[in-house]
Amino acid sequence: MAPHTIDRVSFFSRIQAFFQSSRTPEVSEVPGHTDLPEARWLVVGLGNPSAKYESTRHNVGYMCVDTLLDRRTDNAAPPLAPVRGLKVLTAPLPDAAERALAVRSTTFMNHSGQGVAPLAEKLGIPPERIIVIHDELDLPAGKVRLKKGGNENGHNGLKSLTQELGTRDYLRVRIGISRPPTGMSVPDYVLAPVTEQQPGIDVAADAVDLIIARGLAAAQNEIHSR
């Protein structure tokens, strides 16, 4: 091989290495758990990552997971942590009636299923033991309702979960955020930051604990009477 050919190969190799080292790491490259704890339940809070969205109505699922973990701080509940190779953050929920794992997807809302479905498959958790906490436009603000399956009603996070799980038969904790005021679009409404405390978060957290401890029907009887 001619000397100038060797130099050209070396040059392009250095350029390729530079761009590879400069790119944003893939989720699979993020340090995290090497082994997931055993779990019988997944408690999935839907939302969008980054500080830009953390106080928006669309992130009530994230807020509820935070509340569930905060309630357990006296028992040293671990923080949410990345899982190597999966697009999720997880933390065990101490004191749950059965082993449960709190989950956030690290994708944006529209792709939530890309993290949750592989996690459920890896742990062997069926849809009827996946609890999904999400915002619900068709309920008054703060009203919490529980159900299994049903239509997604235009909710893109639910659509992604249904597509990736291959079923609608997961459990849902629906936190009402009400409809936007006249003249305001749904995206602008759900993605707008709110200054007041979002109502319904504590009730939704109670609902999660009740579902795990006593089943969906018993949890519905109690929560729907509030």
Rank of each mutant, 00 (worst) to 15 (best):
P49W: 08
T107I: 03
H111C: 10
A81F: 13
S55D: 12
A96H: 06
F19K: 06
H134W: 13
A102V: 06
S55C: 01
L146H: 05
R71M: 03
G85K: 02
D74M: 11
P94H: 12
W41S: 02
R72H: 08
D135T: 07
P31C: 03
S50I: 06
E54Q: 14
P49Y: 04
T24D: 10
H134S: 11
A76W: 03
V116R: 06
I131S: 09
E26W: 04
A120G: 09
S28T: 10
R72V: 00
L139F: 14
V27Y: 10
L68P: 03
P92C: 11
V65A: 05
T56L: 06
R145T: 13
A102Y: 08
N156E: 08
V103Y: 09
G149Y: 07
A77R: 01
P94I: 12
R57K: 15
G115N: 03
A76S: 14
E26A: 15
T106D: 08
E29Y: 13
L158W: 10
N48W: 09
N156K: 12
H58N: 03
D95Y: 05
L123S: 06
K52L: 10
T73Q: 15
S28F: 13
L146A: 11
A77K: 02
F19Q: 02
Y53A: 05
D135A: 05
A117C: 09
V83E: 10
Q16C: 01
H33S: 02
L146Y: 10
G142R: 10
L101S: 11
V83T: 14
V60P: 08
E128T: 13
G113P: 07
N110T: 02
H155E: 08
L123Q: 08
R71S: 00
R40P: 00
T56H: 08
G142M: 14
N48F: 09
N110H: 13
K147L: 12
V103P: 11
A77T: 02
V116S: 11
H155M: 06
L93P: 03
L137I: 14
G149C: 04
V116N: 06
A97P: 12
A39N: 04
N59P: 05
S28A: 15
N110A: 06
D95P: 00
S50W: 12
A141Y: 06
L119T: 07
E136A: 07
P118M: 04
E136L: 11
V88H: 07
A51I: 06
R71L: 07
V83W: 14
N156G: 00
G32M: 07
D95M: 12
G124F: 11
P140Q: 12
V27S: 09
L146Q: 07
V65D: 05
V144D: 12
R129L: 00
A76I: 00
